[in-house]
Design a protein around this nucleic acid. Sequence first.
DNA 1: ATTGCTGCAAACGATTTGCATGAGG
DNA 2: CCTCATGCAAATCGTTTGCAGCAAT
Lengths: 169, 169
Amino acid sequence: MTTLPKRVDDNTALSNESIREAEEIFNSHLKRVGLKHTEQRDAILRTFLETHEHLSTEELHRLVKRSDPRIGFTTVYRTLKLLAECGLASGVAFHDGVTRYEHQYNRRSHHHMVCTECGSSVEFFSPEIEKVERDIGQKHHYVTTRNTFQVYGICERCQKKKHIKRELH
Amino acid sequence: MTTLPKRVDDNTALSNESIREAEEIFNSHLKRVGLKHTEQRDAILRTFLETHEHLSTEELHRLVKRSDPRIGFTTVYRTLKLLAECGLASGVAFHDGVTRYEHQYNRRSHHHMVCTECGSSVEFFSPEIEKVERDIGQKHHYVTTRNTFQVYGICERCQKKKHIKRELH
DNA sequence: ATTGCTGCAAACGATTTGCATGAGG
DNA sequence: CCTCATGCAAATCGTTTGCAGCAAT
């Protein structure tokens, strides 16, 4: 039951400059918590930054193996956790039981609509949401920093599937 | 990491009338898809409607066993899926790997603004958010069921604390 | 040298399914 | 009577961990 998230066009490709900055963030995080800088971790970060969508650990592992087939699943898994720790990645638990990650570096805040049947998702950006954030903050005297917004529903394909099922009865 | 939803006093207790309506919705859903009305399913729905928070299948099972110790985990699990199917429940996949459900019957969706310093929160309701949900759903041909919206920031009191700290330096 | 890293394999745990028995229509 | 429901036990599958050998500092 693993339907991949819907592909979303976006132009979030990072410049070399941005990639260097992200590596910098990662390296100083490693130093701060007393961990080592390794080739694998570098490769995983670089591959991850090239992606634009939600990726499961397994999917990222598949991509990473293209640049170095000797990198194991466990290393990808653990590196993804490190990246989340220092804010470069953020994970979303999907309804199919798989946690998918996306890189957060140099991306403007965006939101997700997730299908509760198949777990596929659509990414969108809404200025209205940002306005609500500002208004609510002002009203309650908060200095707001960020928000999360998710919409749940059933995608077109799953709606059709349900109709077909029902017609069979 | 997963911060569990804060306990918020709310008076979402359902009237007997509402409970009957929910049962009605459930029963006609069962009929529609050719399933049977059983004592267990009734008991599970009733227990579920009494709750106010996110519950894992296991937690609901524990509660259900209080009214009938013979009801098994699998039945609760499957009933929860049925409830989600007809819109009476909605599940959220938490980051600890557990899916928790909350009943959606006669609850307006509400949102939280959380202080990232002290964890205190403000609850609010925003019609604009509901409108964005509808619009986005329409645009991408989703039938939307609900949304979550959280704003993060720093509350007034914590802002003042920070000023004081700064003045000490 | 010391300490952490890697990757395999095995453990874990929530979820899901197969199946024999029991209940609803 | 026939069909679906139930609940146990077993299977599944993503995630996490133990450990022996390897690499970074």
